[in-house]
Amino acid sequence: MLLLIQYTLIFASVLLLVALGGCFSEHSGVINIGLEGIMVMGALGGALVMKYMPAGSPAVVMIFATLIGAVLVGVFFSCLLAVACINFKADQTIVGTAMNLLGVAAATVIVKAINTAENPDNVSATIQYISQKKAFLLNIGSFEFNWFMVIAVLALIFAYVTLYKTKFGLRLMACGEHPQAADSVGINVYKMRWAGVLISGVLGGLGGICYILAGVSEWKFENGVAGFGFLALAVMIFGQWKPTRIALAALLFGMFRALSNVYTGFSFLTALNIPSTVYNMLPYIISLVVLAFTSKKSRAPKAEGIPYDKGSR
């Protein structure tokens, strides 16, 4: 049971971080399908920092350096979406999809290049960070506490306060609802959308490094993040683009994802004798069913997905 809670919390943290990223981007009016790619790149940034940090460095330094690495790479990668979709008015779906493919391909090429440069026989796409990873973990009894759970809660508070209690957040949401009106009162729509996408880069990058650290073994970069970026989008839709509801949705989805890791620990589940693949499918099936029931009365930002053109009316 403890194990289930532990895994639920860590997967929920991943989903919460990434879904909040998507939330910022969509409130500003840009659909961010590329979250998956941003996650992979953020994970790469964080993992590389962990690889090159000396193993003996204090935990605090290690945590902050890793986070900064993940955030920087995530933000840098999200610029690709911002440039194409805000300044060049490209189709947000194509660019987002390209970013997902690009993220996995680029990360694999970079990791393999580093590995082969160190040792020509090493063609794996993994980065060694097992000993460095311990900085993030804190054992309380048999419960393995992960600092990312705190980071996710902080991100939730940050998102709530920024979106609803600051001038910036309200302006950002105005750009996603009615950019022309926002522009007419002197808000720079392009700047606001850039801000939205870059914040999603920050949160997506954090979610990425959190995801690969949640696994027990080293992560193979060829595999990407197994659709987590899209699960996060489903969480966001289920949460109706509101941070607090997103948090609850993330917990629910996180639990189903966690079940596939720990179902063997429950005697009544093993007694059912369902193949493990079914548990792997579960989060995706649940999200489809949930989406089918919640999308009808969707409260999506009105202008999302439409490139803003100053000249149009």
Binding site: K89, T97, A98, L101, A105, V109, K112, A113, V123
Partner: peptide, 26 residues
Amino acid sequence: DKSMYCAQISDLISSIIIYLCGFVAF
């Protein structure tokens, strides 16, 4: 040459091509 590069380089090229296709309308 596997001693220097990996086969995914062509995945990288084709994903860059998709990204650039986003600019075609512009």
